[in-house]
Design a binder for these strands. Structure first.
Lengths: 114, 114
DNA sequence: CGGCATCCAATTAGATACTG
DNA sequence: CAGTATCTAATTGGATGCCG
């Protein structure tokens, strides 16, 4: 399921890879940042550890994020965008641009900080 | 749920609007095309009528697609991108570009026609 | 033709507790 | 700290049948 399957359109491929509930947000926070699990959790409090782990594992499995585990006590794990993940930035950015306009024009709610 | 809520990042807004299982595909088929319900069904056979209706209603509710019902017998309904929906084309296109590259590099499956 | 209603199966997500 | 395990709740999706 995680490996490429046939898509009726290429757009579908993207949704399959980064369409998960928290994936774009995770990716968003990882642009220009290497973050530990805990830091991600603080940035995305609406995601439970379980969900965060799951989404991160999928992103890792798809080669979008790097997971670097330091064999120390207490544990330390760092997440960052892989080379492949970096290639998604233009997509994320076009989404961001549109999202900003949308929120502006919808004008019903304000962005929460960050 | 369909109206704007607060997003921790604008990217999330896009996913919420067009992240639905068939939404990007629907949108994809509606670029440059006005299609009837039946035609959409043929283009997207993996979606049941129920799902298609549901996704279309959400897209309509979000002002992304226009639904034009002709009061004739037998019924005739045409779907097309709204002005707002047209603004999504750059996003869809950046996704498409990336998707094409992804599929190429994954190189495990071929695009089905169209 | 373009749906909607109903019922059910499957998938996804949350809460909570626990561990190397 | 960075998760896992388990159980349950909610959401999503499919099959089928019917209707204006």
């Amino acid at each position: 399921m995680r490996t490429a399957k046939s898509f009726s359109c290429p757009v579908e491929a993207v949704v399959n890879l980064i369409g998960g509930k928290y994936k774009t947000v995770i990716l968003w926070h990882l642009i220009n940042n290497t973050l530990r699990f805990n830091q991600l959790q603080k940035q995305i409090p609406q995601a439970t550890p379980k969900m965060l782990t799951q989404q991160l594992r999928e992103l890792e499995h798809d080669g979008i994020v790097n997971r670097k585990v330091y064999p120390v006590v207490p544990p330390k794990t760092e997440y960052s965008l892989s080379q492949f993940g970096l290639s998604l930035i233009p997509v994320l950015d076009s989404m961001r641009k549109w999202g900003v306009e949308y929120i502006k024009s919808a004008g019903k709610q304000i962005l929460s900080e960050k």
